[in-house]
């Protein structure tokens, strides 16, 4: 680890000011991702600003839905009584990720900003455009079994690893951010994480000097009919090969609105817009679920080692929708 100054922020504006005054400072949430990257010399901030003592830990209902404090722990979020009863999809997705110990440490804001688990990104002896722009992408012609099948570019084929974010995407959440000038802005979830394009070093639309203060989830009618499916190499404590967050707003036997997002397939949580559009107004049936899944996956562009993700995606979407229907 490079030497760094350790600072503790007492309030939000202090955190932002500290961040603004040092271009290579970083905020420290639970540290479960940042510290790991610092140990591998992938990240080397010269100052860490501990924000875990900020009062951004509440989870509370408001007129539009529910607000999750950025510094609330993943465990506390997943187990909050209102989240469990009214947003169970989020509970499930959080609990599908990492381990109990890591969820006890991880903050909601930090979870959204966790970086890819592409092993070449972690290995500083390898070329990686995300870590070192212009150096190349070792995964493109290397082992890319875990990598993207949607939305990748000639610069980067990495996937974004958060489970929690897949549920938040399906729940059509937004991210509230405190900006340098003291004002706040709301970023729609679809716009928060970005595709790699020509700038894979950027994972999201947050700017240096901005602090995530909360995640806002609008009210929905999905609680009784939602499911999170995660396919991985072992039963637990492993990142997703493919995951699906699905929720159905039913009107009798018909689907008023289908919410479907995927993890493990792209540089951001992948909204299955084609599948969602296909299902709107249709009968909730396995045949329709499979047809919707196929419509979504038809546009997939697998790499040399991950063709299996296409079939896996079809089955996982179908499966998640069936589970959601059953409730």
């Amino acid at each position: 680890m490079n030497p760094f100054k350790f600072s503790m922020a007492q309030n939000q504006s202090q955190a932002v000011n500290m961040l603004v005054s040092n271009n290579s400072a970083a905020l420290l949430g639970g540290g479960t991702n940042l510290l790991d990257l610092m140990k591998e010399h992938v990240a080397a901030p010269t100052e860490l600003i501990d924000i875990t003592r900020l009062e951004l830990k509440t989870i509370e209902k408001n007129a539009l839905g529910i607000s999750l404090g950025a510094l609330a722990k993943n465990t506390d979020t997943a187990n909050h009584p209102i989240i469990r009863s009214d947003y169970p999809l989020l509970s499930k997705a959080i609990l599908a990720g990492a381990s109990a110990q890591i969820r006890n440490m991880a903050t909601n804001g930090g979870n959204l900003l966790q970086r890819t688990r592409c092993s070449y990104f972690y290995d500083i002896a390898m070329p990686c455009n995300k870590r070192e722009p212009g150096s190349g992408c070792a995964a493109m012609e290397g082992f890319n079994r875990m990598h993207a099948i949607f939305g990748w570019s000639d610069q980067c084929v990495a996937v974004y690893p958060s489970d929690m974010a897949v549920a938040l995407s399906a729940l059509r959440a937004s991210v509230r951010v405190l900006q340098q000038d003291g004002s706040s802005r709301n970023i729609a979830f679809d716009d928060f994480h970005i595709l790699p394009g020509q700038h894979p070093e950027k994972d999201n639309s947050l700017k240096h000097g901005e602090l995530i203060t909360s995640i806002e989830i609008p009210e929905n009618k999905l609680a009784a009919h939602s499911a999170y499916v995660k396919v991985r190499d072992r039963n637990s404590y492993a990142f997703a090969l493919v995951s699906v967050a699905a929720g159905l707003a039913l009107e009798g036997a018909r689907i008023g609105d289908a919410h479907i997002s995927m993890g493990g397939v792209a540089h951001k949580p992948w909204r299955a817009l084609k599948a969602e559009a296909f299902l709107k107004g249709k009968t909730a049936s396995t045949a329709n679920f499979r047809a919707a899944a196929k419509a979504e996956m038809a546009a997939a562009k697998p790499l040399s080692h991950n063709k299996f993700k296409v079939e896996m995606g079809i089955n996982s979407i179908t499966n998640a929708l069936e589970m959601a229907l059953k409730g």
């Binding site: 420290l28 639970g30 540290g31 006890n104």
Partner: peptide, 26 residues
């Protein structure tokens, strides 16, 4: 030393956490 095994698990303020990914200063 990377959060992947749990051998370093300790209990901080009542909750189990990984001491290898916790900075002492925090």
């Amino acid at each position: 030393d990377h959060g992947q095994c749990g051998a370093c698990t300790v209990i901080v303020d009542g909750n189990r956490v990984l001491s290898c990914l916790t900075l002492a200063a925090t």
